[in-house]
């Protein structure tokens, strides 16, 4: 059973978003890390890069696969988690805390409201089984 924290919003591509004012922290969900297997490398954007909604901003590589990661919301990168490439296993072990990937300054702070709630995401996972 996947761990799905209640305080986050979720995309259909299995990213999570934590909104704090006009800042969004983004990572991949427990379901996504489990599907990928052991993560070994994350290709990150740079601070200052701007992304629209649902644009590939990087990729997560596991031993056996690579998966692009998409922006669930539009904004400008204000911080990237540099430490995650030193300990990429954080994405597997702690996807919602230590394994966060980027922080965006949101173009539209209300945009994340359109994403799935934890309950909706759980139903989405159940339906896609």
């Amino acid at each position: 059973m996947s761990n799905i924290p209640e305080n986050l919003r979720y995309s259909k591509d299995h990213e999570w978003v934590l909104v704090d004012g006009d800042t969004a922290t983004i990572g991949i969900t427990d379901y996504a890390q489990h599907s990928l297997g052991d993560v070994v490398y994350i290709d990150m954007p740079r601070v200052g890069d701007k992304f629209g909604t649902h644009e590939a901003f990087g990729s997560v590589e596991s031993v056996k696969a690579v998966s692009e990661i998409f922006t669930p919301v539009a904004g400008e990168v204000i911080e990237v988690n540099d430490s995650v490439n030193d300990t990429p296993e954080d994405v597997n072990n702690d996807p919602y805390e230590a394994g966060w990937m980027v922080k965006l300054k949101l173009d539209n702070p209300g945009e994340a409201d359109a994403l799935m709630s934890s309950v909706e995401y759980e139903e989405y996972l159940a339906a896609s089984e």
Binding site: G37, V40, V63, K64, N92
Partner: peptide, 8 residues
Amino acid sequence: VQYTAGVI
């Protein structure tokens, strides 16, 4: 393709 320990 793998078990619970994972590929690494």
